[in-house]
Amino acid sequence: MVWLLTDSGERQMPDAVAGDGGLWLSPEDMTAATGWELKPEGLCLGDICVPSAPGGFVRDGKIDAAAFWRHMGWPVASSDDGGAWLLGEGAEARRSSLESLTAPDFTLPDLGGVQHALSGQRGKKVFLATWASW
C-alpha cells in the first residue's frame, strides 16, 4: 500500500508499485492523483503534452510518476520504505505565482475544523499574519 500526497490531497494507492526510486501507477491512478492523462503523444494536462522517451517514464502501459515529476524539475519526496510519496509544486510555479502579485490561494481549517479559503475574503483587505507556539 502506497500513500501519495499531492497539492490536491492525500490518497491511498492500492495498485501503485514503488521501488528503485520509482513510483509506478496505472494511467487511471495517475490522472486521479495528478490530473495528467496518458495519451498516444505522451502525458498530457490541458494543452501540454510531454512525450516519454523509450525506456522513460512510460513503460508497459504504466507510468513512473516520480520519474515524470523529476523530468519536469518538480519536487519528489518519499519515505525510505517507499510507502509514502509526495509530488509537489515546482519552484517555478511558485515564483511566477508570487511575482504576479496575486496572493497565492490556500484553504486551511480553524481550530473547529471549519475550512477557510483566502479567496473567500476577496473584497476585504487581508492582513495575513503567521505565528507559532514553538
Binding site: L118, R122, L128
Partner: peptide, 28 residues
C-alpha cells in the same frame, strides 16, 4: 487558521514567524 504543514510558508516563501503579508481587496 491551523497550518500543520506550513503551507503558507511554502506558498509565500516565509522563513520565520511572525511574518505577514498585506493583501488588497482584489487579492493583490
Amino acid at each position: 487558521l491551523i497550518d500543520r504543514d506550513h503551507r503558507v510558508a511554502g506558498l509565500y516563501n516565509m522563513v520565520n514567524v511572525p511574518q505577514a503579508v498585506w493583501i488588497g481587496e482584489s487579492g493583490q
